[in-house]
């Protein structure tokens, strides 16, 4: 046993020495990477670590942070009704728009893949434009769904005789979230969609021909047995993009339903984070919210990735 441990450490030492030698040889690599690594560390890694640290403290910027253990987390889960509402909303939005948006991205990418080149080029712009224009274009929905009779949606429904008084779309809890979800879906064909389009173009044609020989009958079999397994890296990338977006939802709800929204009905986890971080300056509490969100996002990503690895098998 003793010998074993000795050998283990000897090996470790050797590996370390080799590493140092290699590092000395590749000074130029570090020099090239340094500027990016520095900025990345300062604005991504350090904040993440400090955020986890602050989540265990009471900190309001003016006083020094005071360690309070798990108090932030317990009051978050046990006492904060509005946070739970935010969690519920975020979860609803993520569960509905996440998978739907992902499937839409893939379906559209797959359908336009077989179109002639010039139609495909136009189709990509048409489908991708909402996610670029998105933030600026949200205003249009406040005209479409305006709360008075001049709003197009209300006017349409009144013409058809379905309703007789205009609906306050963004103040009525029954309509707030569904409308936000529709808008989020509209904007969901983002970088994942582009990755899918590009990935589909890259699938080897010979494989399809081999598939015809082997008796692949229709487009769905072809999709499952040939196209999807070839696209796995893109599928993973698209999933990461989708999860990050759907858990981080806040722009759409803030712009459409207001901030704070009526009765906090459109609150999401991120808006709650902003509320505590930038309005009330309770940094410790806000950091706890951020940490919870971080853990959920990472877990969800890992889960979906292990699920996606099984595609086509």
């Amino acid at each position: 046993m003793k010998e074993y441990i000795k050998k283990y450490f000897a090996l470790r030492k050797h590996n370390f020495q080799v590493g140092v030698k290699k590092a000395k040889k590749s000074k130029m690599c570090y020099a090239f990477l340094a500027p990016y690594a520095l900025v990345f560390a300062v604005f991504y890694i350090v904040p993440l670590v400090t955020s986890i640290f602050f989540s265990f403290t009471y900190y309001n910027i003016l006083e020094m942070p005071r360690f309070i253990g798990l108090d932030n987390y317990t009051s978050l889960i046990l006492d904060d009704d509005i946070f739970l509402k935010g969690v519920k909303n975020t979860f609803m939005i993520a569960v509905i728009t996440g998978p739907l948006g992902y499937l839409m991205s893939f379906l559209f990418a797959w359908l336009i893949n077989e179109l002639p080149r010039w139609i495909r080029t136009i189709a990509i712009v048409v489908f991708y434009a909402p996610s670029i224009a998105g933030a600026a274009c949200l205003v249009v929905f406040s005209i479409l769904f305006r709360g008075d009779a001049y709003g197009n949606m209300n006017a349409l429904l009144m013409e058809m005789g379905i309703i007789d008084t205009p609906i306050l779309w963004f103040q009525d809890p029954r309509y707030m979230l569904p409308i936000c979800m529709v808008v989020i879906l509209w904007m969901s064909l983002g970088s994942g969609f582009l990755a899918f389009v590009a990935g589909l173009q890259g699938v080897d044609r010979a494989q399809f021909e081999a598939g015809y020989m082997d008796g692949i009958k229709n487009r769905w079999q072809e999709l499952w047995f040939i196209t999807l397994p070839n696209m796995k890296p893109m599928l993973l990338f698209g999933a990461v993009m989708t999860i990050t977006q759907s858990f981080g939802v806040c722009d759409v709800t803030m712009q459409l339903c207001g901030y704070p929204s009526t009765d906090y009905e459109a609150r999401t986890v991120v808006t709650h984070l902003f509320d505590y971080g930038f309005t009330r300056f309770e940094m410790g509490y806000a950091s706890a919210i951020a940490t919870v969100l971080f853990v959920v996002m990472i877990l969800c990503n890992k889960g979906i990735q292990s699920l996606l690895r099984r595609v086509g098998t």
């Binding site: 999860i243 991120v270 951020a290 969100l293």
Partner: peptide, 13 residues
């Protein structure tokens, strides 16, 4: 870091 959105690091930032 692609897996979590930038909002998480906003406050320490």
């Amino acid at each position: 870091s692609l897996m979590f959105s930038g909002y998480i690091t906003q406050i320490p930032n």
